[in-house]
Design a protein around this nucleic acid. Structure first.
Lengths: 141, 141
DNA sequence: TTCACATCGTATCAAATGCAACGATTGTCA
DNA sequence: TGACAATCGTTGCATTTGATACGATGTGAA
């Protein structure tokens, strides 16, 4: 018999929405970007010339969700779009100087929030937790 | 410098949406209910006479989201609504026989999915993971 | 080459969502 | 008691979302 308080999908979902929402409090009002936009920025901060398709595959955000987030970031001057020379179907994305500066402001705030969110765990537990999440995220047969 | 592949809110979110989506594949098409509706049913399966307010508080689903899910379940004959005698602002919810029967069909499927999703972990790791998630979910400061 | 098919990003449109406001009810405190 | 504030569930409305279709481009086999 299912008990919600012991049902992993339920618990992980509650944890995830809390982490997303609390993190959004850190950047949403202050920098005027939404959760999907933040996710795009975060990905562009470390993958150069990544495409919409790749962000979609990495984040499980819908293709059109990514496309729209990119469009808003583009018109806000935070992201540049450039049709790939190799495959003209692809759009290569990268942060503008302005976008990178915004990321560099959010970066320490995000890391501080993560530390705070994990502060209930000891360093050992934190390592365990990361390792277990990694295992669960690894593609299954 | 933030690295997404080590950033807990990001990883936990990816895990959570995979768990939600894959679980929904188990019940959505077969039983014709949405994710919010499933969540309401699951809560009603173990809390009797719970109110919209309480489901909202427990699940972090928006009040109106819960209200609308309940309305659909009501007109589908899966849930009954009854104004509380103690506080007439409250609506006491409970599964109908039909609703309970549906839950009892989904129940083993949900548990089987959970086992499958956690199959990458050893029994020990699974216990650790549950304990760590509980710690992280405990209200902070 | 050519033609059928796959892939990428965007646009379209119905449905879902979140926020704020509302009516109804209850609580508070002067 | 009475007036005002708070709470509950619902609804209206603007926005967001996801599924699908589309045009443009690329791929592969005949």
């Amino acid at each position: 018999m299912l008990e919600l308080d012991r049902f992993t999908p339920y618990l992980v979902n509650r944890l995830a929405s809390r982490l997303s929402d609390e993190l959004a409090e850190v950047y949403a009002a202050r920098f005027g970007i939404s959760i999907p936009e933040w996710r795009v920025i975060a990905h562009l901060s470390q993958h150069r010339n990544i495409s919409v398709r790749e962000i979609h595959a990495l984040t499980a955000m819908d293709k059109s969700k990514v496309s729209r987030a990119v469009a808003r970031l583009d018109s806000a001057g935070l992201v540049e779009k450039k049709v790939s020379g190799v495959d003209r179907r692809l759009v290569e994305l990268r942060l503008t100087r302005k976008g990178r500066q915004m990321f560099e402001q959010i970066d320490p705030l995000a890391l501080a929030y993560e530390r705070d969110a994990l502060s209930a765990l000891s360093p050992d537990e934190e390592r365990q937790f990361r390792a277990l999440v990694d295992k669960l995220l690894a593609p299954r047969g």
